[in-house]
Design a protein around this nucleic acid. Structure first.
Ligand SMILES: [Mn+2]
Ligand SMILES: [Mn+2]
Ligand SMILES: [Zn+2]
Ligand SMILES: [Zn+2]
Lengths: 134, 134
DNA sequence: TCCTAATTCGTAATCATTCTGATTAAACTA
DNA sequence: TAGTTTAATCAGAATGATTACGAATTAGGA
């Protein structure tokens, strides 16, 4: 499954660096939203001196090509590995960031209600505490 | 209608200051999400030296008591006057921040789908360009 | 192996937001 | 109305996330 991400990098002419691969590994290994700080602390096990510039740059780059998805929580951007299957949304634990899939999305009803206005995107996020954190 | 906000301040033992009243006036006068910077530039007409501390403090305070509502756009918190009628969401213009009401909200379907997990809150935001900005 | 553009590094800068300690003023009381 | 109390404001420093920059390194192709 990591190979699929290597593909995506190649498709966009991005080099396969050790930092990028480990970054993907970290996010792919935990289905939750993580802050840059959390991510750097996980990467620090492998690259103790990795630059924040590298982390932020790659979070942006990989979000741009659809490997990650992002959301703003508590004034900080958080990232998770992207869901590539079908359109859906997430429940997000406000304590630990862990996510749970939410299938139902009435985007066509919303588009109907809006009429002419063109919908570029939409955000649906459900918040609460996961079973562990409750 | 400004009187209703004065009530709310009194109910929470908050003083009626000139800054607070003008802040409410500014947000109530334009049904859109505004950043702290935008807000301070509007307030500057009346209070050229108003402190950012005053702006941020009051944005928080008034959001806490339900006078304003907030959302994070582009890494910046944005505020608008709260909708006090019934539960609903908004379409938000990505250029100018103007909002349009979206009535349909399937929160009970989502709660059903989630089962046990307790839902604390939810965010639904539809993005695009308003007629003016399109 | 060599070249070159992309990537990373270390660090400084930026920008939104928060904090602090001193000053002001709203609201209550006499 | 004057006095008292305490919340609110102010100016400016501090914080914390994010971005920028010039120099050094490296992936990937020739
Ligand atoms: Mn998902
Ligand atoms: Mn709703
Ligand atoms: Zn949790
Ligand atoms: Zn607009």
């Amino acid at each position: 499954m990591i190979n699929q991400y290597k593909e995506q990098l190649k498709e966009h002419n991005l080099k396969l660096t050790d930092k990028r691969l480990k970054l993907i590994e970290v996010l792919a290994g935990d289905e939750k939203y993580m802050s840059a700080k959390e991510i750097q602390s996980k990467l620090a096990d492998y690259f103790p001196t990795i630059s924040y510039d590298t982390i932020y740059r790659n979070l942006h780059t990989l979000t741009d090509i659809g490997v990650f998805e992002q959301t703003s929580l508590d004034q900080e951007m958080h990232y998770k590995i992207a869901c590539v299957t079908h359109h859906h949304h997430h429940f997000i634990c406000e304590r630990c960031g862990v996510t749970q899939v939410v299938e139902y999305c009435p985007v066509e009803k919303w588009q109907n209600e809006l009429g002419d206005v063109k919908l570029n995107s939409h955000k649906v996020e459900l918040y609460g505490y996961c079973e562990k954190c409750a």
